[in-house]
Simulated assay, not measured.
Amino acid sequence: MKRRNFIGYAGAGLSTAIFSTLVSHVEANAQSSGVSVQWLGHTCFLFTGGGKRILVNPFRTVGCTAKYRPPRVTADLVLISSQLLDEGAVDGLPGNPKLVFTPGAYEFQGMKLQGIATDHDRKGGKQFGVNTVWKWMQGGVNILHLGGAAAPISIEQKILMGRPDVLLIPVGGSDKAYTAEEAKQAIAVLNPKLVIPTHYRTQAADPQTCNITPVDDFLTLMQGTPVRRSSSDTISIKSGDLSDSTAIQVLTYKF
């Protein structure tokens, strides 16, 4: 099915421009004000900056997300990595946000976005299909959200992804997302300035059905990389404040 048949899914329309050349970098605004990143649980984050609010991967509260609050926040644009319930549940979102969930190059209110297709499992996509990695620049910060990536990053994908200022990466494993070791390998490939781990076990999990591991398993594996633990679910980021070497930022969900 062609991309135009997907845009407008769940009743949300999106005016898009499809670019003939896929770009791997977007120029930063020299007068950027930065971006606020709020963790809403699992792989769901709200990015606020540059006059826009972008919501990524709203979920249904079941399994590993059972005790999180439904992420029904106001946003201008919603990006989802797949239509699985833990990263693509858009029912009940307030307002009329624009929605994109297929790979490709887009423009939204002057902002360029790139959706990059990767496998959502270790079987060439045969089990869970395509995962869409989202790349964009907001408030002068180059953001890369890997969604539910499970396969190694190819050379072609790395070219499209570039070097992110902020990388959001799954670390808890399962059949449809990176294990801690796989996440470490992807970080070595992408060399981000700041890593925000996602998709790991918290007290929100239903212990009978959730099979992902805690973030501490990943942090132990990444010994030697600076780790910042915030007591908040939100962090403000400016590109100029980031070190050139990789650091890890762990946010705290407010139950």
Rank of each mutant, 00 (worst) to 15 (best):
N57G: 03
G148Q: 15
G240Y: 12
L168K: 02
G34T: 02
H42G: 03
H145E: 04
K193G: 03
V189W: 09
V215A: 00
R229I: 06
K254R: 15
L46C: 10
L168D: 05
N211E: 11
T118D: 05
D206S: 11
I7S: 07
V250K: 02
Q127A: 15
D165G: 13
P152N: 14
A149T: 14
L251N: 02
K2I: 10
S231K: 08
D91E: 10
L144G: 02
V26H: 06
I237F: 00
E182M: 14
D165M: 13
K112R: 15
A204H: 05
V56S: 01
Y200G: 01
S82W: 11
S36L: 13
I143C: 05
G139K: 03
Y9A: 15
A12W: 10
P58A: 15
A183Y: 00
N191A: 14
A89E: 13
T48S: 15
T132H: 06
V90E: 07
Q31V: 09
E27M: 13
A12D: 12
D86W: 08
I7Y: 14
A150S: 14
L167G: 02
W134G: 04
S20I: 04
F218S: 00
L221R: 01
S154C: 11
K176G: 11
R60M: 09
L194Q: 01
K158S: 12
L160T: 01
T202C: 09
P97T: 03
